[in-house]
Amino acid sequence: MNVAPAPAAAVLQAQRVSKWFGEVIAVNDCTLALGPGVTGLLGLNGAGKTTLFKMLSGLITPSQGEVLIRGHRLRRDVGLFRRVGFCPESDALFDWLTGREFLRLMVRLMGYDGMEVDARAERALDLVHLGDAADRRIGAYSKGMRQKVKMAQALAHDPEIVFLDEPLNGMDPVSRREIVALVQRLGDEGRCVVVSSHILPEIETMTRSIVLIHRGKLMAEGDITEIRDAIHDRPTIVALTSTEARRLASSLAGRDLVRGVEIDEFGRVVARTDHAVNFYRELPGWLLAESLPVDEIETLDDNLQAVFDYLVGG
């Protein structure tokens, strides 16, 4: 299911990539093109999500097909890593270095020297709010701080493409909020940000755009709502709060776009529709025509968890 057209200026492309380990096919013939913005890479454990993520980020080579960054192969043209920031899931770090020393090394290895190294390291530390702990050894950092320093090294050189593997692991709620806001801002700035996570609400706080991989195959790609709307065998459930619930329910019940209506235990009118996009387009007209008051409209199952469950059969 691919509901989003390939971005005109795809920054990152996977062209019919497959990866197998012996007789096990981890990723099977996946094609995708990612442009600016945040994209969540989702999948159950063992679905091939990690393998696809590592192929996209140049850590492993596809058995077949190729991964391109602006038309060039990352595995072959390692100079392209200047455009890439990578925040690994692994907790391994240079524990004997201070946060500042680590970032300076990472910036230096990106090709910067002199004052630029210090300036970029400082800016990256500020970006993740780690300035106060910059001179402490990484070995003494908490899990959340380690996560932040990994994030900082991925961003210190202003990459065009950012790969974040489980970026919120071990973070406290305040840090989570900061990092989520940072990720959203990276996407708003026009960077191509790929976030891999198995915690769906985590992804949902960062983006509505997802790539879902299941059993090694690309199952869905695009906006969550659009993907949800394309799942025709599962009607979208919309809850409407109204002071005239009964009149609203009977009005909706006769519409072609509405498959069923009921009033739930909270007094809300719950309608099921096979075409959510058309339903939302028509709904204001219906309400106005019959002077039906509505205080709140909520789609109960166009969240990521629902989409995920419908698609992978959870």
């Binding site: 602006r70 100079g79 392209l80 970006l127 202003d158 801002r185 700035e189 026009g190």
Partner: peptide
């Protein structure tokens, strides 16, 4: 976030083709 966007972000975001800069670092220095 109170931190300003990195200055080079706009260039990167616009897909600025920094092809001349996409070379690996020198062997000896790295």
């Amino acid at each position: 976030m109170s931190v300003a966007a990195p200055p080079a972000a706009a260039g990167a975001a616009a897909g600025n083709d920094r092809a001349g800069n996409d070379r690996p670092l020198g062997l000896a220095v790295s």
